[in-house]
Design a protein around this nucleic acid. Structure first.
Length: 151
DNA sequence: GCCAACGTTGGC
DNA sequence: GCCAACGTTGGC
């Protein structure tokens, strides 16, 4: 089983929204590396740190899990969608996604500030490659964050 | 709202 | 296939 971190802007879609809907297709990823993680590496049941980005206090807010095999991101075909990509077609789809399912909210959300300050977490992509919207997380990093979150 | 980092595009 | 221009992300 693998661990991941996935970012979402809480104004757009927060951990509360995920809890409300239960399962959500992760539409709109338009970055090849992020797509490749979903398409090639994610397995059903993989655990996800759900991260709130581009907000007042960026935090790991909760836990989700991979809930489907990868499939075509149909939002790319819809000219009215903000995720429309004319270069992706049903014949030759460019983008794929997985569903993610709500698992829990963290008792104490872990802030980016805490993560940056923690010597064990300086290797996290969140710190070093901050623009990656989907990132692998090691088991050690996962454990550390769970400890900090009181989970 | 600024701006650094960095991914993508397209001309050559 | 290089690289300049451009667009986006995301912390601050």
């Amino acid at each position: 089983m693998n661990y991941w971190l996935m970012k979402s802007e809480p104004d757009e879609f927060s951990i509360d929204d995920l809890q409300h809907v239960g399962t959500e297709p992760w539409t709109g990823i338009r970055n090849y590396q992020a797509r490749n993680y979903m398409r090639d590496s994610m397995q059903i049941g993989d655990q996800i740190l759900f991260y709130h980005s581009s907000c007042k206090v960026p935090v790991v807010a909760g836990i989700a899990e991979v809930a489907s095999a990868p499939y075509t991101d149909f939002s790319a075909f819809n000219a009215n969608s903000r995720y429309f990509d004319p270069k992706s077609s049903p014949d030759n789809p460019r983008w794929q996604l997985v569903d993610i399912r709500f698992v829990s909210r963290l008792p104490k959300p872990v802030t980016l500030k805490q993560i940056k300050a923690h010597p064990q977490l300086t290797d996290m992509a969140l710190v070093n490659h901050s623009r990656q919207s989907i990132q692998p997380v090691t088991a050690q990093q996962w454990q550390q964050i769970m400890t900090m979150a009181g989970a």
